[in-house]
Amino acid sequence: MISQILSTSKPCKKQLEFDGISSNRFILRNQVGKLILGIKNVPILKDKIIGLGNSITIVKNFDEYQYLLCSHIPTLSDESIWKFKFQKIRILIYLYIDKMTRLLVDRQPKTIRDKTFDTLNTTGNNILLETSELIQQFRETKPAEIPKLDAKKDMNLQINLKKDHFAIFQIKEKEINDILFSYYGFGVEAIKRGPELDDDNYDE
């Protein structure tokens, strides 16, 4: 799944046909046009599912960011720290949408009155905040000053995000790091793994 996200060669494009905000319909497709999630009447479902409205707003923002990141990533070298972090955000966006879809489809709820979506939305908002900060930093960085991976230092620490957003998806960030290092041709021998990270290594 993650390799497919990284290797997609399709042109960058928005994935929302209808955003559920300016329209009563919510239609989300992947990069090849396959339907991911469709909701015919968002207002009715929002009344039944606590937090769904916020989830839809988060996905709308994610769609803007995934398009922007998709446009920036090909311009960066494979040694660019920004490239690794941007790819991780793209993976997080996929994981968020996948989890949201599974909550709606697998449970087939008539109503969801618990905090299921609120918990997911907290993570979604944290991802949005870090994405916004990353893009702002990227825009303020001159091309000649774009940081590159330094094999003499702990490479995991260099590409880790400020918060471990992967935890809610039952994935360790280090696992994603290893996939990215392998995909971009950094062998295990080149990676200084350092100590295992815990919550204290991330910003609150």
Rank of each mutant, 00 (worst) to 15 (best):
T57M: 12
E145A: 15
L161P: 10
Y202Q: 05
P11E: 04
P143V: 02
H165N: 10
E196S: 09
K88D: 02
D47R: 13
N41D: 08
G20H: 01
K40F: 03
K153I: 09
D154F: 03
E196M: 10
T119E: 12
H72I: 15
V188S: 08
K115F: 12
K13R: 11
S23T: 08
G33Q: 01
G185P: 12
F169E: 01
G51N: 01
R29V: 12
R139W: 14
N121P: 07
M1E: 12
E204W: 07
D98T: 07
T111Q: 09
I89P: 06
K153Q: 09
I146R: 04
I36N: 03
L104F: 09
F138D: 02
N24I: 02
Q170C: 15
Q136S: 03
N61K: 13
S182V: 13
T8D: 04
Y65K: 00
S7Q: 07
I91G: 00
G53D: 09
I73S: 00
Q66S: 03
L149E: 01
R107M: 13
G51W: 13
T101W: 07
F138E: 02
S22C: 11
Y184I: 02
Y96L: 04
S22G: 09
L104A: 03
S132A: 08
D200W: 02
D78V: 09
F186S: 00
P43N: 03
D63E: 07
K14V: 04
D19H: 07
K162I: 14
V188C: 02
F86Q: 00
S23D: 06
Q108Y: 15
K152P: 05
I2C: 05
T116S: 10
T131Q: 04
P74L: 12
Y183V: 06
I159V: 14
E140K: 07
I2S: 01
L35D: 03
I27W: 02
K148T: 05
K152Q: 14
T116G: 11
N156V: 12
F18N: 01
M155S: 01
Q158N: 03
V188I: 12
I179S: 01
F18T: 03
L52P: 03
Q137M: 10
K153W: 03
Q158V: 15
N54D: 11
E140W: 14
C70H: 15
E133Q: 09
